[in-house]
Design a protein around this nucleic acid. Structure first.
Lengths: 353, 353
DNA sequence: CTGAAAGCGCTTACAG
DNA sequence: CTGAAAGCGCTTACAG
C-alpha cells in the first residue's frame, strides 16, 4: 500500500483556480443558492475541466449524514417462510451500510390483512425515513400510501410486485409472464408429449390471483406458440388448507388420467407434492420458490423443479439502490427484472437465493 | 437526513477513559508495537466494553491508503469470449471501489501459451500489488508463481479454477463434479428413456482435460446412482477446429443411431450445435456458458440448455473479497462455489451472468 | 513507551 | 453573495 502523491486536488484546488474560498466551491457542487451566476459558472467550468469527483468518504465524514431506510414487507408467516429471504437481503445491506451511517427500520404486515398493511404504513410514515423499500402487496392501500409518501418526496423502491401507477424510484422483482413461459418450456421438455397438463392456482388473495393469472398466460402462450398437443386444464383453489386442496386435486386427476404434469403457479407447490406422494402419483410437478418445504420434495423427487427469482437479492439490491440514490452514487434502472432461476435436486445446494 | 447526537465516542472517548492519548489508542487498535502491556490491556478492555468499531471512512481518509489490486486472467480470445465476463465483473468492482482508493491493474495471458502466463506473472510481481485476483489456468506455472507471491505475503484469490495445493485467501468458482451431475439430471429428465448418451470433450489443453473429466465423473455417477438404462459413450476431440470435430462426431453418431442426447463438457457446445444443425439431427444438446455463439443456438433450438456458473460474479466477488480483506472489512470463505445456473431459451434474456 | 499536533477532503455554521 | 474557521474520526510523523 503506497501513499498518494501530494498535489493540490479537490475543492482546494478548484477554489485556488477560481480565486474563491472552498466554501463557495462547496455551494456550487451541491447546487446550493447564494452564489452569483458568474462565479458559479466559473467554478463549474473548472469542475468540468478537472473532471472533479468529490471524495464521498470525506463528505460523508464531514456531514455526519445519517440516512434512515424503512423496509416494509410481509411478516414471515408460519404458512411460508418466503419473506425471510427479502428480509435477509435487506439485513445484509444493513450490515454493509452501517459503517456509512445508514440505519434501517423494519415494518412488517400480515399478508392476509389489509389493515395491518395500512397500519405498518402509518408507522413507517411517522418514522420519517429518507428512503423506503416496499413490497406493495395490496394495490389500493399501496396507492394510498404512495400518495402520502409522494408529498414528502421520499424515494420508494418496490420489490416482489410492481405498482406501475405509482411513481417509484425502481421496481426490482420478477417478470411474471416470462416465468410462466419458462415453466411451460420445462414441462414441454420433460413431460410425455401426449400428456395433459394441469395448472393449479392456490390463493385466497385477490391481488395474488392476479399475479398467478399472469403466469398462467405466459404458460399457455408458450404452448400455443410451440403448437404442441398438450391439453391444459386449470384448477383454481380458493382455500389454502391442505385437505381442501386434496379433494379438489384428486377430483381433477381422477377425471383426467392423462394429466402428466402439474404447474403450481406459486410457492404452495409443496402442498400438491404432499398429496401426490400420499397417493403415489407419478406426475411431473413444477412450482415456485426456494422454501424449506419445497426443497424437501425436491429432494424426494416429488417436485421436479422450482422456479426462483432471488428473493434475497431483491431485498439486497433494493436497499442498495436506495443507498446509492441517496448518496448520489448512481441511479438504478426504473425496472430491474430478476433472473428466473431453475432449481433442481442437483443444483439447489449451491443456490444462494 | 438528520444529524447524529454529539457525545464523545471513538478513539477520543477511549483515550479519555484510559487516560492516554489517542495516538496510543490507535497503536493498540492496529496492534502496533511500542505500547506497554499494561496500557494495551487497559485499552483493549475499554474497546471490548464499548464494543468499539473504528470508523472505516475516517481511517481510510486519514491514512490515504491506496490499495493496488492485480487481476491476472486469460485474454478474451476470438475463439471464446468467456473471459470477458470475469473481466467485466472485476471492472464493476473497480468502478465501485475507485472512490475508496482501490486501483486495478490487469495482466492478461493467452490460454494456449504457458509462456504468456509466466510473462504475465512476472509483470504482475513487478507491479507490486497489494492483492491478486488470479485464474490459475496452468497448474505448474501457477504453483511457481504462488511460491514467489507467498514470499511477499500478498493475498491471492483464485477464480474459475482452484489450486488446492497453493495457499490462497479464497477460491471462487464452480464445483465441477456437481455441474456434471446436473447435466445428467437434465438429460435424464428430458431425453427419451432408452436413448444412448454421448459425452463430448473438446480440448487441446491438458489442464482443461482434467476439468472436463471431473464433470464427466459427476455426469456418469448420476446415471449410475439413478440406475437408468442410458448407455453412455465418450468422445474426446483433441482439436478444436470445426471440421475435425465434425468428422469425429458424425462417425460416432452414425455408428450408434440410438444416441439421443449429447453433453458437451465445456463452452464449445456451439461447435456441436452447428454440426447438428447442418445435418438436421434432432438430438438433445446441453453444454456450458453464456456465450454469444451458444445463445444463438439456444435461440434456434439446437441447444436445449446451457449450464452457467456466473463468470462475471466470479470476477466481481473475487475482487470484492480482496478489498474486504485488505481493508479488514471481513474475511471471505476459503471456498465459494458459484450457483449452477440453467439457461434456456425462456430465461436467458433475464440472466445476468 | 507516550503525547501533541497536523492533516486526510470535505461540510457546516457563523460572520460579514 | 462570500470567506475563514472549526470539525467529522481517524492516522501519521515527530518529539520526547
Amino acid at each position: 500500500m503506497k501513499m498518494q502523491s501530494k498535489e493540490l486536488t479537490g475543492v482546494r484546488e478548484i477554489a485556488r483556480r477560481a480565486n474563491v474560498s472552498i466554501g463557495t466551491v462547496d455551494r456550487v457542487i451541491h447546487n446550493r443558492k447564494g452564489v452569483s451566476v458568474q462565479t458559479r459558472e466559473k467554478i463549474n467550468a473548472i469542475i468540468e475541466e478537472l473532471n472533479f469527483q468529490p471524495n464521498k468518504m470525506a463528505s460523508l465524514l464531514a456531514s455526519k449524514k445519517n440516512v434512515r431506510l424503512a423496509v416494509c414487507i410481509p411478516r414471515t408467516s408460519t404458512e411460508t417462510d418466503y419473506w425471510k429471504y427479502p428480509l435477509n437481503g435487506a439485513m445484509q445491506a444493513e450490515a454493509e451500510l452501517e459503517r456509512f451511517g445508514v440505519n434501517f427500520s423494519y415494518f412488517f404486515y400480515d399478508l392476509d390483512s389489509e389493515k395491518s398493511f395500512v397500519n405498518a404504513g402509518k408507522l413507517l410514515l411517522k418514522s420519517g425515513p429518507d428512503g423506503i423499500l416496499l413490497a406493495p402487496s395490496f394495490v389500493e392501500e399501496s396507492l394510498l400510501l404512495m400518495g402520502k409518501i409522494k408529498k414528502k418526496g421520499v424515494p420508494v423502491v418496490f420489490i416482489n410486485a410492481d405498482l406501475p401507477k405509482a411513481e417509484s424510484l425502481s421496481y426490482i422483482g420478477p417478470e411474471l409472464y416470462q416465468s410462466g413461459r419458462l415453466a411451460a418450456q420445462l414441462i414441454s421438455l420433460s413431460a410425455p408429449p401426449a400428456g395433459h397438463v394441469l395448472v393449479v392456482n392456490i390463493s385466497t388473495n385477490f391481488e395474488e390471483d392476479h399475479h398467478l393469472k399472469r403466469k398462467e398466460q405466459g404458460f399457455r402462450q408458450f404452448f400455443e406458440e410451440t403448437a404442441t398437443a398438450h391439453e391444459i386444464h386449470t384448477l383454481h383453489i380458493g382455500k389454502t388448507k391442505s385437505n381442501s386442496v386434496e379433494s379438489a386435486l384428486l377430483d381433477v386427476l381422477t377425471n383426467d388420467p392423462a394429466i402428466k404434469a402439474i404447474f403450481v403457479t406459486n410457492s404452495r407447490v409443496s402442498v400438491v407434492a404432499k398429496i401426490l406422494q400420499k397417493h403415489h402419483r407419478q406426475i411431473f410437478l413444477i412450482g415456485y420458490d426456494f422454501l424449506r418445504e419445497n426443497l424437501h420434495y425436491l429432494e424426494t423427487g416429488h417436485i421436479a423443479c422450482l422456479i426462483c427469482q432471488r428473493p434475497q437479492e431483491q431485498g439486497y439490491v433494493g436497499a442498495m439502490a436506495l443507498y446509492k440514490h441517496l448518496f448520489k452514487l448512481g441511479e438504478p434502472d426504473k425496472t430491474v427484472y430478476m433472473p428466473i432461476d431453475i432449481i433442481t435436486r442437483e443444483n439447489y445446494k449451491f443456490y444462494k437465493s
